[in-house]
Amino acid sequence: SLSVDNKKFWATVESSEHSFEVPIYAETLDEALELAEWQYVPAGFEVTRVRPCVAP
Rank of each mutant, 00 (worst) to 15 (best):
L33R: 15
A32F: 02
V47L: 04
F9V: 00
E17H: 14
A55T: 10
S16P: 12
E31C: 06
D5R: 15
V13M: 04
D5P: 14
Q39R: 10
F20W: 08
A11H: 01
L35T: 06
P23N: 04
H18K: 10
C53Y: 07
S1H: 11
E46H: 11
C53P: 04
G44F: 03
K8F: 13
V13E: 00
S15F: 06
N6I: 15
T48H: 04
V22I: 07
V4R: 13
F9R: 00
W10F: 05
V13D: 00
E34G: 07
E21S: 06
S15D: 09
E14D: 05
I24R: 02
R51W: 09
A32L: 03
F45A: 03
P56Y: 11
E46K: 15
W38C: 07
A26L: 00
T28I: 02
S1L: 09
P42F: 08
E34P: 01
R51V: 10
S1E: 09
T12I: 05
S19Q: 07
H18G: 14
R51S: 05
P52G: 07
A55Y: 11
S15I: 06
D30K: 14
L2W: 11
E17S: 13
C53F: 07
E21Q: 07
W10Q: 02
I24N: 00
T48S: 05
E37Y: 14
F9M: 00
Y40C: 05
S16H: 09
D30H: 11
E27G: 13
A11R: 01
V47G: 00
P56K: 07
V50L: 06
S3C: 15
T48N: 04
P23W: 11
L33K: 13
Q39A: 11
L35A: 06
E27F: 13
A55R: 12
F20Y: 07
Y25R: 04
W10K: 04
H18S: 09
V22E: 00
A26E: 01
V4W: 08
P56Q: 12
G44P: 00
C53V: 07
E37N: 12
E21I: 09
P23K: 06
A26N: 01
V4G: 12
K8N: 04
E37I: 15
V22L: 04
A36H: 01
E14T: 14
S16W: 09
V50M: 06
R49L: 12
P52D: 05
T12P: 00
C53R: 03
L29D: 03
I24V: 06
P42S: 09
A55F: 11
F9P: 00
E46I: 15
N6Y: 15
L33W: 15
L33G: 03
S15N: 14
Q39N: 06
D5Y: 13
C53Q: 06
R51F: 06
T48L: 07
K7D: 03
E37Q: 14
V54S: 12
L29V: 06
W38P: 02
T48M: 06
S19K: 11
A36F: 04
L2D: 08
K8Y: 12
L35F: 08
E46G: 04
N6R: 15
V47R: 00
D30P: 05
V47C: 03
T28H: 05
E46L: 12
L29S: 05
V13G: 00
F45V: 02
S15W: 07
P52L: 13
A43Q: 14
N6W: 12
V4L: 10
A36W: 03
F20G: 01
A32C: 06
A43I: 08
L29C: 15
A32Q: 00
A32R: 01
K7N: 07
E14F: 09
A26V: 02
E14H: 10
A32H: 01
E34V: 12
Y40A: 04
E31R: 13
F20S: 02
V47M: 01
A32V: 02
E31H: 10
Y40H: 04
R49G: 13
S3I: 11
E17Q: 08
V4H: 13
V50Y: 03
T28A: 03
V22Y: 04
V13R: 01
F45D: 01
A43G: 06
D5W: 13
A43H: 11
A55E: 11
W10P: 00
P23T: 09
S15P: 01
E17L: 10
A11F: 06
Y40I: 04
A36N: 01
L2V: 12
A26Y: 02
T12S: 05
A43F: 14
Y40G: 04
S15V: 05
R51E: 06
Y40W: 15
A32P: 00
E14I: 13
E21W: 06
P52V: 11
F9Q: 00
R51T: 07
T28L: 02
L2N: 11
E21R: 06
Y40N: 04
C53A: 13
E27Q: 14
V22P: 00
D5H: 15
F20H: 04
E27H: 14
W10V: 06
E14R: 14
K7F: 11
P56A: 10
Q39L: 15
L2E: 08
A43W: 15
S19D: 03
L35D: 02
S19W: 11
K7C: 15
W10H: 03
P52E: 14
V54H: 09
F20Q: 03
P52I: 12
R49A: 14
E21K: 05
A43Y: 14
H18R: 11
A36P: 02
W10R: 03
W38T: 13
A11P: 00
D5N: 15
E37M: 14
S1T: 10
E34H: 12
K7Y: 09
D30R: 14
E46C: 10
S1V: 09
Q39C: 15
F45M: 05
L35E: 04
A55G: 11
S3K: 12
A43M: 15
F20P: 00
E37T: 11
K7Q: 08
S3W: 10
E27V: 11
V54G: 08
L35H: 05
A55Q: 09
E27D: 10
G44Y: 02
V22N: 03
G44I: 01
S15G: 07
E14V: 14
E37R: 15
T28P: 01
Y25N: 04
E14N: 08
V13L: 11
L2C: 15
D5V: 15
L33C: 06
H18L: 13
S15R: 08
C53E: 11
F45E: 00
A36I: 04
V4I: 12
T28N: 09
G44D: 03
F20M: 07
V22A: 04
W10Y: 07
A43K: 14
C53D: 15
L29Y: 07
V4M: 12
E34Q: 13
A36C: 06
V54N: 11
Q39W: 14
S1D: 11
W10C: 15
A26D: 00
L29H: 05
L2A: 11
E34A: 15
E34C: 12
S15Q: 06
P56S: 11
F20V: 03
E14W: 12
E21Y: 06
R51Y: 09
N6Q: 13
A26F: 02
V41S: 10
D30E: 14
Y40K: 03
T28F: 04
T12M: 08
H18V: 13
E31A: 12
V54Q: 09
N6E: 06
R51N: 04
Y25F: 09
T48C: 03
D5E: 12
P42D: 06
A11Q: 00
L35R: 09
T12K: 07
V13C: 05
L33T: 08
Y25A: 03
A55I: 11
L33V: 09
L2I: 12
S15K: 10
D5F: 14
F9D: 00
V50T: 02
A55S: 11
S1G: 09
E27M: 14
A36K: 01
N6M: 15
H18P: 01
P42G: 09
L2F: 13
V47N: 02
P42I: 08
G44W: 03
I24W: 02
E37D: 04
Y25G: 02
T48Q: 04
V22D: 02
G44N: 03
A11K: 01
R49F: 12
